Amino acid sequence: MAAGFYLSWRATRLDRLHHRVETARAALDAALLRRGSAVLDLVSADGLPADRARALADAATAARRAPEGERELAESALSRELRSVLGPLRATAHLRDHLTEVAGAARGVQLARTFHNDAVVDTRRARRSRLVRVLRLAGTAPLPDFFEIDDEPPAPPTGSDTL
């Protein structure tokens, strides 16, 4: 009887860990979409030079439309583009709110990715147990994957009224 209770507890724990991964992945997807929207709002704010705005818009659109297998690369490219465009940028009063929104969204992506990858670590650790593998307590749930992107946020622009 105790063995049955223990096995039931382990299976329930695995189920909760898999649910945690799914929830964290949904939060990560939402954070990535929020960052892409913030970038597109910044681009449409009419304060960036045309070449910088075009590069950011292209990167944000590519990240949003990337198929699942290529999404990590596209999101990393958007992160790099944000750093290259916003790093040397001097913030104007007109752009300051948009830049704050982009910076907040970039921090949100960083946090969401950390939570997701931590959930994946915990789930993989629980699934490595010999008992879980032998008795197939994880059922048919696929082994969760990490989401690895370059998510370093851009440096805050300097506070001048010129670009």
Rank of each mutant, 00 (worst) to 15 (best):
R10Y: 03
P67I: 00
A74C: 10
L73A: 14
L73Y: 10
R133H: 02
L131Y: 01
L82K: 05
A141H: 12
T61D: 13
T23S: 14
A53N: 12
Q110D: 15
D41I: 00
A2I: 15
L137W: 03
R13W: 11
R90F: 09
R16S: 12
A45M: 06
A53E: 04
E81M: 15
R65I: 11
G36E: 08
A38M: 05
A30F: 14
I149T: 15
L32R: 15
E101N: 09
L56P: 03
A53D: 12
V121K: 08
R83K: 01
R107P: 05
L82Q: 03
D145I: 06
A2G: 11
T100R: 14
G4D: 03
R35L: 09
E68C: 01
V43K: 01
A155G: 07
Y6T: 12
A106F: 05
P49Q: 08
A141N: 13
A50S: 13
L99W: 06
G47S: 07
S37H: 11
S37Y: 06
L17Y: 05
A31R: 07
L135Y: 04
G36F: 09
H116V: 10
N117M: 00
A126R: 01
R113K: 12
L95T: 08
R127P: 01
A91S: 15
L17T: 00
R128Y: 02
R20L: 15
A138D: 03
E72R: 06
M1S: 14
R107V: 12
G108K: 14
P157I: 09
G36P: 05
R136S: 10
T100Y: 09
T114F: 08
A27M: 10
R52I: 06
V39H: 01
A119F: 03
A31V: 11
T92Y: 07
E148T: 15
V85G: 04
P153N: 02
V102I: 08
P154S: 05
R124M: 02
L28G: 09
R96L: 11
L73N: 13
G87M: 10
E152R: 14
G159S: 15
V120R: 00
L48G: 04
G47I: 04
V109W: 08
P67N: 02
L42T: 00
D51E: 14
G47A: 10
A63L: 08
V134L: 12
D122E: 14
L48R: 09
L48H: 06
G104W: 11
A93F: 12
G87Y: 07
T114P: 05
R52H: 14
A112D: 13
T140R: 12
A155W: 09
A55M: 09
H18P: 04
L99Q: 03
T123G: 01
R25E: 10
T92M: 04
A138P: 00
L131A: 13
S37I: 05
T100I: 15
L40W: 04
L143M: 13
E152D: 11
V120C: 05
D51M: 09
L14H: 02
S129W: 03
A62S: 07
P49M: 07
G104F: 07
F115P: 05
H94W: 01
A91L: 10
G4H: 02
A27G: 13
Q110G: 03
L42V: 03
R25L: 13
A38W: 02
